[in-house]
Structures are given as structure tokens and as C-alpha cells.
Design a protein around this nucleic acid. Sequence first.
DNA 1: GTCTATACACCGATAGAC
DNA 2: GTCTATCGGTGTATAGAC
Lengths: 202, 202
Amino acid sequence: MDSENSGQGRRRAVSRRMGPQNSATSHAILDGAERVLQSRGYGAITSRSVAEESGVKHQLVYYYFKDIDDLLLTAFKRRMDRGIERLQRDAQSDRPVRAIFEDFYNSIDAWLDFEYMALANHHDGVRQEIVRFQTEARAIQIGIIERAYREKGIDPETIPPAALAFLITHVAMALVREEGTGFSAGHDEIRELVDRFFRSLE
Amino acid sequence: MDSENSGQGRRRAVSRRMGPQNSATSHAILDGAERVLQSRGYGAITSRSVAEESGVKHQLVYYYFKDIDDLLLTAFKRRMDRGIERLQRDAQSDRPVRAIFEDFYNSIDAWLDFEYMALANHHDGVRQEIVRFQTEARAIQIGIIERAYREKGIDPETIPPAALAFLITHVAMALVREEGTGFSAGHDEIRELVDRFFRSLE
DNA sequence: GTCTATACACCGATAGAC
DNA sequence: GTCTATCGGTGTATAGAC
């Protein structure tokens, strides 16, 4: 998993013949990879396991992707791009602050995200992609919160927008994660607290 | 990583000869495993990589542990036990609520924990151990918070103890995790908010 | 675009000698 | 308690035919 340059520079630098980036087959392979990630973990991601899950022969993986790291990075970027798109839609909602909370809560796949986070520890491209996503996502969230504060005449000093964005993100994620392990002590109280706060903004 | 029974039932059910659980060598192997986990990820955990990191021959791993799953579970349990011990010490502190926050903040190894969380997705024993830790830890934290509320005459309805325990835990963890990726937007605001709250309890 | 074939490396787990 | 030796299995990445 030690990728020297995947992510920042150019992909595709192998002598062997390779296919296009956006074919139906390459997306099928990405879907298969994410299913393997989800069900068996990044340690189980191999050209063979992904191919089997995608319904193609294992050598095809190397026709569409430079190597396993490239495959994983591409899958992760696709996932993060979709997250940004959802946030942009949330901003259009009539209760946008609540929307970014519910959006995170509903779209997070706790286990899949842990796989990607663990992966990021050893995959420079994925780590850089996480920073890119965090930066963009937080900026969008802060914009939404500042607008809500202005409209309701709320003092931004009480809970600064950046702090609220942080809280919304991580409370939603933590709820999903704990539920994922079958543990939900205190969740009702947290949801009540969150709801009380959102109502004060609406 | 599909462990059928590791964790709940008895370990040790192989015909081959095996060594004691608490020798210096077995702890050296556990330390090595955690270093590999930290530096290269659970996908890189093999009897050979762990042995090399521990300075022993790879076959010794199978003398001290049933298999790789058993090794990983033992390492994780050891780590969680240490966490519980620290929480019990925090309870003795003169500012115990602040102590559980600082404790989490200082003892979390964001990347190592992601490895374990990802591992839990495919390792029943580790998942069960997480639930055990969460249950015990939350109970201790709630006890600490309830005591602080009583001593200061604070209404527990404002922020219920279970909710506060949840927030303290996950805010501390999220700070460490974001810092781990080199992202710290809003952290100053969060720390200020947290500090303001803790001062109101002291 | 997709398949067959293939090189070469690495891992898990065990048996048995010292 | 530690070592040598070894088995069968699986993975990566490529070359080249169809």
C-alpha cells in the first residue's frame, strides 16, 4: 500500500496497455471494490476478489487501473465527490443546518469509512483526498451556518460557525459509528439536545 | 480475518504445542504487532512482519498465539484494559470531567484506532471487545459527570450526563483524528468552547 | 475489450529437531 | 523455548493471443 506518487501527480505510467477511465466496466469494478471493502475490509481487496465481486476476470482490473492503489484511490475520490454534491444540495434546503446533520447521518457508512480512514494511514493519495474533502466540506458547512445565523440574528460568538460545523459533522458520524457496533447509550439524549438546538435556529 | 469463535469462547484449541500467555516474549510480539499496525496497517500484519518487528523468528508467533486473529485480539484487549485503567485514575482527579477529556485527547492514537475499528468490521472478537470497552468506559464517565453535577448543583436536564459523556469522548477523538490528517480548521473555537464549559463546572 | 498463461513472491500453519 | 524445513495456497503484474 505504499504508493509513491498516486494522487498528486499523473496516474497511468505503465508500459502495458490500458483502458478508458469512465467505461461501464470500470465503474462496475469500482462498485465491486467498494462492496469488498465494506464486507471484507481493505485487507481483502485483491485483483481477484474485486473482479469476482464485479463479475469480470481478475486481469481486467489491470486493464482499467494502474494497480490496486490506483483502484482504491479512484473509488475513494468518487465517493468524496458524491459527498460534496450532497452538501451543495443541502445548502438549497429550507432548513439547511438540520439538512447537513441529517445528510451526514444518513449517508455515512460507518464501517466503509473506517476502512478508508485506515487506508489513508498508508496511502498518500487517499490521505490527500481526505484533506481536500474536509476543506471543501467544512467551507460549505460554515457558509450555510453563517447564513442561518444572519437570518435569525444569532450572535456568532456563542457557538462560532466553524465550531458548530465541527460538532454537527462529528456528532452525526459518532452516532452512526456507535450504532454500528450495537451500542447506543445516551443517543436519545444527544438527539434531543441536537433537535432542541436546531429548533432554536428555525 | 473471519474468526469463527475468537473472543467469546476459549482461545487455544489447536493440537500444536503452545507457550504461556504472559511471558516477556509474548508481550514483545504484541508490541511488535501494534507497531506494524500503526506504521503499515492491519493488511501488513503477518506472522513474518510482526516477528521481524519484534526481533523473533516468525514461527514463534504460532508458539505464543493460536493464529493471527488471536494475536490481534490479544493486543486489542491489552490496549482497552489500559484505557479503562486510565479512566479509573481520571475519576480520582480533582477536576475529573476535564480529566476524561484530556485523557482521551492525549491517549488516542488516531491511526492505530482506525486500524482497530476497521479490523472490528471483520473480526467478531475485536467487535465484542469494543462494545465491552464502550459500555464500561461510558459507565465510568457518567458516574464522574453525575458526581460533578451534584457537587456543583447543576441541573442534569440541561445536558444529560450520558449526552455529555458522548460529547466529551467524540469531540476529543475527532480533534485528534482531524489533526492526524493535518486539518485543524475550527479547532481553536472548539477548544475555547470546551474550556468555557469545563470552567463552568469547576 | 477480454481471455490464457505465466513469472515470481509471500503467507499461514504445521512437524519435528535441538 | 527456539530453530530448520516445508506444504499448499494465493496474490501481483505482465505478455501476448483472440
